[in-house]
Write a protein that binds this DNA or RNA. Sequence first.
RNA 1: GGCCCGUUCGUCUAGGGGUUAGGACAUCAGAUUUUCAUUCUGGUAACAGGGGUUCGAUUCCCCUACGGGCUACCA
Length: 516
Amino acid sequence: MSDRKVRVRFAPSPTGPLHMGGVRTALYNYLLAKKLGGDFILRIEDTDQERLVPGSEQYIIDALKWCGIEPNEGIGFGDGPCAPYRQSDRKAAGVYTQYAQQLIDAGHAYYAFDSKEELDEQRKRFEGMGKAFAYNAVTRQNLKNSLTLSEDEVKKRIESGEHYVVRIKIPRNEEIRLQDIIRGWVVVHTSQLDDKVLYKSDGMPTYHLANVVDDYTMNISHVIRGEEWLPSAPLHVLLYRYLGWENVMPQFAHLPLILRPDGNGKLSKRDGDRLGFPVFPLSGELTDTKTGKPETFTGYREKGYLPDGFINMLAFLGWNPGTTQEIFSLNELVQAFSLERVSKSGAKFDPEKTKWFNQQHLRMRTDAQLAEALIPLLKAIGIETTPAFAQEVCRLMKEKVQFTHELRDQGMFFFNDPEMYDADVIKKRWNEQSAGFIAKVKDALAAATVWKAADLEATFKATAEANSINPGSVMQLFRVCVSGAGGGPVLFEMVELLGKETIARRLEKALNTIGK
RNA sequence: GGCCCGUUCGUCUAGGGGUUAGGACAUCAGAUUUUCAUUCUGGUAACAGGGGUUCGAUUCCCCUACGGGCUACCA
């Protein structure tokens, strides 16, 4: 069993945009598959037709693509030998009924005719007694199902078209043990389990049946999913057992949850809105099935995050390589990854560190790569530039920013003459001598024969000293005259890049504006 | 309520029967860049509590507390 080919799957349900917790689950699946030379499959679990949100399937595909963690098999990435990969399609192809029937025939499942209303009634009744209702070994004897009704009666009801579900018959007194790669042995007594619905009255299997059948038929070797599935894992073990597949049952790994940054609880869309960070990889708009209203949401991509920075951050939310290295490319993550080093406890998401990860990855990009991202951002606000100039801007700006759009926003002065001059600096540094000095610098620079940063700096200093001025005291003022901003990249490199004419024009403008 | 899972600096975490409990983000303070938003150096800061086991527990066991998840004909 240990030498079996690794096949893992990411199996989201298309009920809305994929959020970052889902992306992390996909990532860990991807990393394990690549590390072990296995397959990574995307399977769409759309057995709940009511909650289906049109467009979310495409969103999931686009998100995985942007993140660079593409499945090599499944919806949106090419069919493999286990097609179809959408559970509604598999249901239509009849893959589930035979297994439900197999369970019924073996006495491990049964028909139940109780209506939703009747069950609600039961729940209320139990609640009144201070107990929780469960459809289980005790209560099933007093409910309407094929265990209490006569064979004829059951037949009659089914043939008359009465709605029914198929439920698993949980044994009364057994201990289910399962080994989780992350948590070790987990033991649950069957008296704590209830007779979960396997087949719904609308003809669809539930997650529990579909998931087990699909993992078996798709030859899945490892099930890597969120911790919210841990309580139902024993049920799945039982299903594998009753279907006769326990010897090829996948290994389980239940991931810790991603928690909100403040307080406690699972990270949700609301937290992002409230605290001002994205919860989704991509921006978009999907229509909520219940309200019928389109809901928009913002993504990491649109906020200027690089996919590899985003992925790097996600990888470290609940995993670490055991070394002090924190910055990893996707390929390096593949090499370093192991499920054994995934931690057990939930991790609070940290938006600040996420920015830091992004910054680190941004710095690893070449100037040309950054320019490629910068040019369209400029174009979007009507600024045209050359690749060569954009690349130089990136070279000077990249140590100063965390996001690609900051390359533009904080580097506006490379493209436009300043409209405003940093008021604090003016207030602090501008005095009666200033205009005279700037005018002299302007003339000195206009006379420059070599337009290189080092020479320009020397010229500037010489001009200052010739006028008995400490160069340090006027440098920032000069910067403001040139760019409008009190801070920025290395001053004279910036001056060199801006060029002789631009500098002359801007100094002229500054003289005509400041102090007037 | 019941069941399951968890608990090391504010946050992500390393470690693990005897350590000055390590790193990173954030934060604070210095330095340097005769400007700055970069960089460097340093500081503050943690084993939830109580019982065991042990020569010795933060580490192993139990209990409590706290947190989270599940408890649907949702996934």
